[in-house]
């Protein structure tokens, strides 16, 4: 049995929006600890805070379309002993209120949780204004901040519970449209841990958030061509699990990262920083490369940006082939 149970087959996985897991996790966190409060900027159902609002109406605070106030009021509530979860679309929080997050949550060291729903190309038809691609970069440079991009809705529920009790500022990266569920209730989740979810020898595929499932698909495609990829799921981008990543890189000698975000400053950059300092290793970073998104169905956009499992397999195949010549 694997140390990290996943679904038995990736052929026909169940789908659910990652944000739904947050909605369930927040209710559980609220039931477990009455210090948990929830603040929303006029997107209560979109961000899945409505279940918490129904269950704990006295602990739900509507702040209106005011993301700067959202985070700073939460900072005050944290000072008064509460554990505030704040939610909006990621394009606006942390997109609009970065300085408030830096000063009043991180420097002020208060356990304010920033929940950014609607990240990545997954937002689809709303287009570039609402497709948050820069959030990983913005959040991971902040001291004290923990940055989590769950791989699916089951993991998002666990991540929400974990952030409720870790005592520090946190960022939780969610997605709107349904994505495949590949973890199980039994899969472990600890903040700061990366997990080998498929063993391999030829290269290491490192995914965060929605991209990990696509890497499982890519590994399957590659396997048929005789390339045996190891797949690491890295839900916590900060702090990065250096030991697990370095062990895999040392074994395979080739690392590929994938994220539904800007490569610049994002997850791939975090891995690049680690490898270049600790274990210089050939590295390919996949994601969005210094451009904005656009309207389209989520799947169409992933295809256009070369981020489906099949596209990733083809891109990796080209690298592996060149590497062997």
């Amino acid at each position: 049995m694997s140390a990290f149970p996943t679904i038995s087959s990736i052929e026909d996985p169940a789908h659910e929006p990652i944000r739904f897991g947050f909605g369930r996790g927040l209710v559980r966190a609220g039931a477990a600890d009455d210090r948990v409060v929830a603040l929303c900027a006029d997107l209560t159902e979109s961000t899945q805070m409505h279940a918490f609002k129904e269950r704990f109406p006295e602990r739900f605070i509507e702040v209106g379309v005011a993301e700067q106030n959202l985070v700073t009021v939460a900072s005050g509530m944290a000072r008064a002993g509460r554990i505030p979860f704040t939610s909006s679309y990621a394009a606006f929080s942390p997109g609009r209120n970065w300085e408030q997050i830096k000063t009043t949550a991180c420097l002020n060291d208060q356990p304010v949780k920033i929940v950014g729903s609607h990240t990545g190309l997954n937002v689809g038809p709303d287009g570039a204004t609402h497709q948050m691609l820069e959030d990983i970069a913005l959040m991971r440079v902040l001291p004290n901040m923990v940055v989590v991009a769950p791989g699916d809705s089951i993991e998002a529920e666990k991540a929400t519970m974990a952030l409720a009790s870790n005592g520090s500022p946190g960022y939780l990266r969610l997605a709107r449209d349904p994505t495949p569920i590949f973890t199980t209730d039994e899969s472990p989740f600890t903040l700061g841990r990366a997990y080998v979810i498929r063993a391999g020898t030829d290269l290491s595929l490192l995914g965060t958030g929605t991209m990990t499932f696509e890497l499982l698909v890519a590994a399957e495609v590659l396997d048929r061509t005789g390339v045996h990829a190891e797949v690491l799921h890295v839900p916590t981008v900060k702090p990065l699990d250096a030991r697990t990543i370095l062990a895999s890189a040392a074994k395979t000698g080739l690392v590929v990262t994938a994220e539904e975000a800007q490569v610049a400053g994002g997850f791939g950059s975090a891995v690049a920083e680690l490898l270049s300092a600790e274990l210089p290793t050939r590295l390919v970073r996949l994601g969005v490369e210094d451009r904005f998104g656009e309207s389209g169905r989520p799947r169409e956009l992933l295809e256009k940006f070369g981020l489906t499992g099949e596209h990733i397999a083809a891109r990796v195949q080209a690298v592996v082939t060149v590497g062997r010549k």
Binding site: Q68, N69, T72, V73, A74, R79, T103, N108
Partner: peptide, 19 residues
């Protein structure tokens, strides 16, 4: 609180007052 970047204190005070 930590302060200096302007505009944040009233919100933080409001958060404490709300609790």
């Amino acid at each position: 609180t930590t302060s200096g970047p302007l505009g944040c204190g009233l919100s933080q005070g409001a958060g404490i007052a709300y609790v």
